[in-house]
Design a protein around this nucleic acid. Structure first.
Length: 279
DNA sequence: CAACAGGCGGGAC
DNA sequence: GTCCCGCCTGTT
């Protein structure tokens, strides 16, 4: 119960991952203490004196969290692929050195990224928290649970027009007409195509599901931010060939860096404080 | 007030 | 196939 397991790990930063946009409910419960979830498992993790403390036994760490944090992949090796003259990516990696692509639960990722479309992070997090409140233990609701929730109730979770997409896919899944597990053995292209056949899943969301739900690191989701980054820093095209098999990781460094920049920009140029008219 | 947010579906062409 | 529009809703 009060088991703890401490291990030294490289290329890992919990805050960076929590803020990287690949996960919407890795919350910081106390200073430096993050909660992560995988299916029926949940644990707290913290960084302490250069090591990571998992609030679970070594057995659970080996069984669940080792893979969840993608610890089998050497991210230093991936970073080493970067062109020494690519100042943008070098800076991005400097700021997001501890980002890893988590191996999250596929169903949770499918629903979460449907929620994420044309949406902002605080609202996405709020909606997903409400979905998770449907279960007793706070785990992510299964297709069965979701299928029993009315569209009206889903709408009340702030899901907007995405309510129907979720309801529809949950029903289809319960009926066996959509089988998430069947995507697992497919190639990236096949999986993307199968995902895009579902209502509410387009190109971008399918790519995100491929990366974060199926760990296809050769995918490269292009959202409005990444599109702008490419236009600003890679006018002659992004060197995908250089990062074969790992483009998704580069995308994460870029995306995270852009988020940091926009946050900083919002801070340095705060919204004008309107002088309140004296009444 | 309009524009935008980690887009998508549907229709026009 | 590409282009364009409307869409839930909170924030800037």
């Amino acid at each position: 119960m009060s088991d703890k397991f401490t291990i030294k790990l490289n290329d890992l930063n919990l805050k960076q991952i929590a803020d990287s946009g690949q996960i919407f409910r890795m919350n910081e419960e106390e200073e430096g203490l993050y909660r992560v979830w995988f299916r029926e498992y949940t644990t707290l993790v913290e960084e302490k004196d250069g090591s990571f403390v998992f609030h679970c036994g070594e057995e659970e760490f080996n069984k669940v969290w080792y893979d969840y944090f993608d610890l089998g992949l050497d991210y230093a090796k991936v970073k080493a692929l970067v062109d020494v003259e690519d100042e943008y990516l070098k800076t991005a990696i400097k700021h997001g050195y501890g980002i890893r692509i988590l191996r999250q639960d596929l169903w949770e990722i499918i629903i979460s990224f449907i929620v994420s479309q044309n949406n902002n992070i605080p609202r996405i997090k709020n909606s997903i928290a409400k979905l998770c409140a449907l279960t007793k233990d706070g785990s992510f609701p299964s297709a069965t649970v979701l299928s029993q929730v009315s569209v009206e109730e889903l709408h009340s979770y702030g899901l907007g027009y995405r309510d129907e997409y979720i309801h529809r896919l949950a029903l289809k899944t319960v009926k066996g007409e959509f089988v998430p597990e069947s995507l697992i053995g497919l190639s990236y292209e096949e999986a993307k195509k199968a995902l895009m056949a579902e209502h509410g899943i387009g190109k971008k969301v399918a790519d995100c599901i491929c990366v974060f739900g199926l760990h296809h690191l050769d995918a490269f989701p292009i959202d409005t931010h990444v599109k702008q980054i490419l236009a600003a820093h890679y006018k002659d095209g992004f060197p995908f060939h250089r990062y074969e098999g790992y483009a998704a990781i580069m995308q994460q460094y870029m995306f995270y860096h852009d988020l940091l920049n926009s946050k900083k920009a919002a801070k340095t140029s705060p919204q004008k404080v309107k002088k309140t008219k004296s009444k």
